[in-house]
């Protein structure tokens, strides 16, 4: 990012305050004069200096053609205000969603961007207000087209975060002017704690149960062959029987659950909450992979033991939002 976009600069703070006053939070925008800003870039100022030099040259030589050239370049500057603005104006942008991420990872915010005009849009640049170096996207839009753009953003901590403002910027065609917008989104991301591999307290493996007491379908051990019902997984179809013209059969697997694991926040020996959550996160992922039955006990939240993707999401979500249920602005 170049040095002109220092978001911590006082004038930038002032600008954002002013922006907040006049713009709302939304999940879809159309770029227009009310949310587009335009100002000469560093190159634009250099160009103006060049025009002044040319003008001095023309005046000193009393050369009307050099003067005309300098006027042509002034006109070019003025006209390129319109051209740069027109490259962004009218674009429609809508927030599509953001997958969950772990702390320290890059979240990918999906936007559907639509160009209804019969002319293409070139060299548009998107980045989040708090994005790190290199976390940006360049894209172009063909005439009457739409694309999906993922704007990356590194999230350092777990929690529920609002991404701040999204900047869309374009300097096309001549780079003399910077036309940009800051859009605030009705969107947030749930950031899971960063997994931390440390042993769990032995006390967690409570509720040892004997084999065979709780046969639960699913698992690794083949138990029976049933008639196929719609909705059965394709992976479990007995293709060999099908090949022998015995009809569609589904192999049933079962697992005798040996245990229910309770992960209890309060019984952990680490003093730091975040560290505890990270360890819990690691084990939740590990148990999920091992197809264990695991439950979570957090102060104020209890999730009964279970397994599967939904259960995993529920557990991780609980870890993510622990102590910070309300979305907060992501700041560094």
């Amino acid at each position: 990012m170049n040095k002109f976009l220092n978001y911590k600069a006082p004038w930038q703070k002032f600008f954002f305050r002013w922006l907040d006053k006049r713009s709302k939070v939304d999940s879809a925008y159309q770029l227009a004069s009310k949310n587009l800003y335009i100002f000469p870039s560093a190159l634009g100022f250099a160009f103006l200096v060049m025009i002044v030099v040319l003008w001095l040259l023309g005046t000193n030589y009393q050369n009307n053609l050099i003067l005309a050239l300098s006027y042509l370049l002034i006109s070019l500057f003025v006209v390129s205000i319109l051209h740069t603005y027109a490259n962004l104006a009218g674009i429609e942008i809508q927030f599509k969603g953001v997958p969950h991420v772990f702390a320290g990872e890059v979240s990918q915010w999906g936007f559907a961007i639509k160009n209804e005009h019969a002319k293409s849009r070139e060299n548009i640049f998107a980045r989040w207000q708090f994005a790190e170096e290199g976390e940006d996207v360049h894209f172009a839009l063909d005439a009457s087209s739409d694309i999906t753009v993922n704007v990356p953003l590194t999230v350092p901590r777990r929690g529920v975060f609002q991404p701040g403002r999204l900047m869309l910027e374009s300097r096309y065609p001549l780079g003399l002017l910077r036309c940009w917008t800051w859009l605030k989104w009705n969107a947030h991301v749930v950031v899971y704690p960063q997994p931390l591999a440390k042993p769990l307290p032995r006390a967690f493996a409570v509720d040892e149960l004997s084999d065979g007491d709780h046969p639960v379908s699913g698992g690794d051990d083949f138990s029976a062959l049933n008639n196929y019902k719609p909705g059965d997984s394709l992976k479990h179809i007995a293709w060999k029987s099908f090949a022998k013209d015995q009809g569609l059969m589904t192999k049933e697997f079962s697992q005798n659950l040996s245990r229910e694991i309770w992960m209890d926040f309060s019984q952990m020996k680490q003093s730091d909450t975040e560290e505890r959550l990270s360890i819990l996160c690691h084990w939740a992922l590990a148990f999920h992979l091992q197809n264990e039955n695991y439950g979570l006990m957090l102060p104020g939240t209890i999730i009964e033991p279970g397994c599967g993707d939904n259960h995993r999401a529920e557990v991780l979500n609980a870890l993510a939002v622990f102590g910070c249920e309300m979305p907060v602005d992501l700041r560094r």
């Binding site: 005309a68 006027y71 002034i74 006109s75 070019l76 003025v78 006209v79 065609p173």
Partner: peptide, 17 residues
């Protein structure tokens, strides 16, 4: 694109001239 930029600038230039 360049012809448009130039064609849009020329009339403005004439007035400035």
């Amino acid at each position: 694109a360049s012809s448009k930029a130039l064609a849009h600038s020329l009339p403005v230039m004439v007035v400035l001239f």
